[in-house]
Amino acid sequence: MIIIANMDISRFETKLEFSEETRVITPAQAVIQRIGTKDISELEKPHEPGARIRDEKLKLAIL
């Protein structure tokens, strides 16, 4: 005898295609922050070397 459990929704996808290409003048990071799909604290982590030093005097000291 075959036993079948309930059917579950596993994935729910929506898609919109636009009739014109949309140009975004807002910086990409600001758009992602506004959409709120990622943790903002992660996005704010600086990636370039030395960027953690916000104090201008300290920045000059290491140059």
């Binding site: 579950d8 929506t14 919109l16 295609e17």
Partner: peptide, 15 residues
């Protein structure tokens, strides 16, 4: 969002 030429809903069911 500009004019839309396609709206789509896709649902995957698993049993």
């Amino acid at each position: 969002i500009s004019k839309i030429k396609l709206q789509r809903l896709r649902i995957f069911w698993i049993r």
